[in-house]
């Protein structure tokens, strides 16, 4: 299905967009069709109630250090997100932060966000960098704080409960769009070479690996090379941040999910002059922020993805 292009949005997609704005949504994919359900905290779980199932949480774009009008208390918002994770009825296998941990890559902001992530109750905590985490040093301070166990400029892979995870860095050596580079593409080539085609693959990156809105840099110029390496797999799920809003799209064997933020919303593609932080009317901010629960039951084809707004 490829009718989800924001530049050539179908009526159905437009309706979905309208429905998504300011709400938290669960997306389940059945036969290529996306079905969305609004989720509020405490609503029935789409994530399997089974300790043997894989369950993890994605948070994104905490922008610790941001002080603008769109959210004058980003630290508090991120604390809410962590409390919400720690209050889940299960302990996630891991929590993944998909980048823009900090707003300006300062040592103090990295220290603060690292300490905050240290309070997350989960099997493990993982991160990928956003461009805000590599503002002036090519990601050096990011890797000092979060790079343990990674290779190259911070990429790595891991396996949990039969699912293969690849964490990519597409916020360095940028020009207009996100960029992976040959070293990283080669890493993916070797990384997946020995995997059987029925292994579910999940790819994390900050900037989308699909062309969500290239005019604002919401895409990755060499993502096709990585996606080609994943073509033989039955189930590929790409989870990204960066765009501060929910969006999903299926292309062949790959489903892309953009996550919302814990900091502040950005405009929908093309609805503003620039992707500048949006200041919502009083009381509406929490509705635009959220966390994402993801589940996978061994033997099923797709992951269950549930976006929940901040309580």
């Amino acid at each position: 299905m490829s009718d989800d292009d924001p530049q050539g949005m179908s009526r159905r997609q437009l309706l979905r967009h309208t429905a998504w704005f300011g709400s938290a949504v669960v997306l389940t994919v059945a036969g290529g069709e996306v079905i969305s359900h609004i989720h509020t905290p405490g609503a029935a779980a789409a994530v399997p109630d089974d300790p043997n199932a894989l369950r993890f949480v994605q948070v994104s774009d905490s922008h610790i250090g941001f002080t603008g009008a769109a959210n004058t208390a980003v630290t508090e918002s991120f604390t809410h997100a962590i409390n919400q994770i720690n209050g889940l009825p299960y302990r996630p296998d891991f929590v993944m932060h998909t980048g823009d941990l900090t707003h300006l890559s300062t040592a103090g902001q990295f220290d603060q966000v690292k300490q905050m992530l240290g309070t997350v109750r989960a099997g493990e905590t993982f991160t990928v960098p956003g461009e805000h985490d590599s503002v002036d040093d090519g990601g050096k301070k990011y890797r000092q704080a979060f790079g343990a166990g990674s290779v190259g400029d911070g990429w790595y892979s891991f396996d949990v409960k039969g699912v293969h995870f690849i964490s990519l860095v597409n916020t360095l050596n940028l020009e207009k769009l996100g960029h992976l580079g040959n070293d990283q593409i080669e890493f993916v080539r070797k990384d997946v070479a020995g995997l059987s085609a029925d292994t579910p693959v999940v790819v994390f990156s900050h900037i989308p690996l699909f062309a969500m809105y290239p005019q604002w840099g919401w895409g990755t110029d060499d993502a096709a090379q990585v996606l080609n390496l994943l073509k033989r797999f039955a189930s590929v799920t790409c989870l990204n941040g960066h765009v501060h809003q929910l969006f999903t799209k299926t292309e062949g064997n790959v489903t892309f999910y953009s996550a919302t933020t814990t900091a502040y919303p950005l405009p929908k593609p093309g609805t503003a002059k620039a992707p500048a932080p949006v200041t919502l009317p009083a009381g509406q901010l929490a509705d635009a922020l959220g966390i994402r629960e993801v589940g996978y039951q061994q033997g099923s084809h797709n992951l269950a993805v549930k976006d929940v707004k901040l309580a």
Binding site: E131, D136, E175, K176, L177, Q215, G217, P275
Partner: peptide, 10 residues
Amino acid sequence: YLCTIHPFMT
């Protein structure tokens, strides 16, 4: 040149 935070700014 560009802005590393908003690399579409060239």
